[in-house]
């Protein structure tokens, strides 16, 4: 289990002021779950992910993965970035196998594993292509395959589909659910799309900015329903989906509205 306990992060802004980016966030990510952090920009969701990935130390609090404290980046936490970070000089298969190369896995075994993972994300015929020959959606699929290659305990995804067009994005969401259903990986996923959060998450945590904090938890089951029935339209048109959507929407917008009303009072 991944446990985040009272995690706080303070940054120093350029003008010397202290920015409270994350305020006492606590979170559990159990086996076989997809936890989606949802919030407007500046709510600390990327800060939280960076801390879990080990790119950023915490000011206060702790993060443990299966009891081990998280201090630095490592292959036990696979990261999929918003911007594609594939190596332009390596073939798709070599990109996927990069983590295996770091681990000292021999070449032939790396190739086999890469092909297997490319099959999982539907790119088996692109093993020898180069990243610049692929579309944005395909590159993100390579990114997912690469993060899975080292068989991490958790997959961390920082708005991975944010830069994709909406049609590709829907395909990628379904692909991710397939990957999750087949590998049983736990996933921490960041988005600012309420619909994406509800569709993908087994748990949705809503975050609010200044200071970034978790304001609500929802346990959701649309993703399990989709994995079983594969009927997107039934899910999106379900009344419970619409109700949750409205509830979360009001939560996401509330702090903004409060801040604005305060400003109006001041004027």
């Amino acid at each position: 289990m991944l446990q985040v306990r009272n995690a706080s992060v303070f940054f120093s802004a350029r003008d010397g002021r202290v920015v409270h980016a994350l305020d006492r966030a606590s979170l559990d990510i159990d086996a076989n779950s997809i936890v989606v952090a949802l919030g407007a920009s500046g709510c600390g969701k990327s800060t939280l992910l960076n801390a879990i990935a080990g790119f950023l130390p915490l000011s206060e609090g702790s993060i443990t993965l299966d009891g081990q404290p998280v201090a630095s980046p490592g292959a036990d936490r696979g990261v999929v970035f918003q911007k594609d970070t594939l190596l332009p000089w390596s073939s798709v298969a070599d990109n996927v196998a990069l983590g295996l190369r770091f681990a000292g896995v021999p070449g032939r075994e790396r190739r086999e594993r890469a092909e297997e993972l490319l099959g999982l994300v539907g790119l088996e015929s692109f093993a020898d292509a180069f990243p610049h020959e692929l579309s944005g959606g395909m590159r993100q699929r390579v990114g997912i395959a690469r993060a899975l290659a080292t068989d991490p305990k958790i997959l961390l995804m920082d708005e991975p589909f944010g830069a994709l067009d909406s049609l590709t994005r829907e395909q990628m969401q379904e692909l991710l659910i397939d990957v999750w259903a087949r590998t049983g990986k736990r996933i921490f996923f960041i988005t600012h799309s309420i619909e994406e959060a509800l569709f993908l998450g087994t748990t949705v945590v809503v975050m609010s900015p200044r200071p970034g904090r978790i304001v609500a938890h929802f346990d959701v089951d649309f993703v399990r329903r989709f994995a079983a029935e594969r009927d997107v339209r039934a899910i999106l048109s379900a009344p419970e989906f619409a109700d949750l959507y409205d509830e979360i929407r009001s939560l996401v917008h509330r702090p903004q509205a409060e801040a604005e009303s305060r400003r109006m009072v001041l004027q």
């Binding site: 790119f55 990261v79 681990a103």
Partner: peptide, 23 residues
């Protein structure tokens, strides 16, 4: 060198020399 590329390699388990050599 973009920092994301470095972070990606670190999260794939790259050591210092591997990071230098491959990234």
């Amino acid at each position: 060198l973009p920092i994301e590329r470095v972070n990606a390699a670190l999260s794939l388990g790259a050591g210092r020399w591997q990071l230098f050599r491959t990234i």
